[in-house]
Simulated scan of single mutants.
Amino acid sequence: MTEIRTPRLVLRRWREDDIAPMAEINADPEVMRYIGDGLPRDLEQTAESIERWEEEWDDEGFGLFAVELLASGELAGFTGLSVPAFLPEVLPAVEVGWRLGRQFWGQGYASEAAHATLEFALQDRGLDRVISIAQIGNDASENVMRKLGMVPDRTTTHPVSGRPLRVHAIDLTEYRA
């Protein structure tokens, strides 16, 4: 089982008891504001998402990790690697992404988890380039991307929602762990 520990977090595979707390995160309109169409997700949609994320682990050898606080065991959200199939123009590509509950914002958890995920991409999965995609206006996510050393690669439009997106990228041969 793939697990990564950082000073404050455990990045791990999903468990059945993660569905309800992740559904609470996905039900928050402020959390979902810049995700896809911006609409909150319910328990059933969250369970389906987690099932897809776990399938990606089986299919690709990487996926989205559940992010757990080391001190309390509380689920904070997710981070990890995925293939951004929703945006065919960037393929083939692997994206680093994250989503945390609002109570975990502003504490450096997203940067800490994403940093560990980039190291995983380089050292364990042998990837040479990783992208990250944010809706324009999602300044917090773009700030995390800058902290990771990612640079803007292109601006485009979400093919379904029509929302403007910015794609950031990093060549992992130049990544400084």
Rank of each mutant, 00 (worst) to 15 (best):
T6G: 14
T6F: 14
L9D: 09
R15V: 09
D18H: 06
D18I: 07
P21C: 11
P21G: 11
E24Y: 05
E24V: 12
I25V: 15
N26R: 09
E30D: 09
V31P: 11
R33K: 15
R33P: 06
R33A: 13
Y34V: 02
I35H: 07
G36Q: 13
D37E: 12
G38R: 08
L39F: 02
L39K: 10
L39R: 13
L39H: 08
R41G: 03
Q45G: 01
Q45N: 00
Q45L: 01
T46H: 13
S49K: 05
I50F: 03
R52A: 09
W53E: 12
W53H: 10
E56T: 12
W57V: 14
D58S: 07
D59I: 07
G63S: 15
G63P: 13
F65S: 11
V67K: 01
E68L: 04
E68M: 08
A71N: 04
S72D: 05
G73V: 12
L75A: 02
A76G: 02
G77R: 01
G77P: 00
G77L: 03
T79G: 05
T79E: 13
L81H: 07
V83S: 09
V83K: 14
F86R: 15
E89H: 02
V90T: 15
V90Q: 10
A93L: 10
E95F: 12
V96W: 03
L100S: 11
L100V: 05
L100C: 12
R102C: 00
F104P: 06
G106E: 10
G108Q: 14
Y109D: 03
A110I: 07
H115C: 02
T117Y: 00
L118R: 00
L118W: 00
L118Q: 01
F120T: 01
L122P: 01
R125N: 12
G126L: 08
G126Y: 03
D128I: 10
D128W: 11
V130S: 02
I131D: 08
I131K: 10
I131G: 11
A134M: 05
G137Q: 07
N138A: 06
N138T: 07
D139N: 11
S141Q: 09
N143L: 11
M145L: 07
L148N: 01
V151S: 14
D153E: 15
D153F: 15
D153A: 08
T155A: 13
T155Q: 14
T156V: 11
T156M: 06
H158C: 14
H158S: 12
G162P: 03
G162R: 08
H168W: 15
A169F: 07
I170R: 06
I170Q: 10
D171K: 04
Y175T: 08
A177Y: 04
A177V: 07
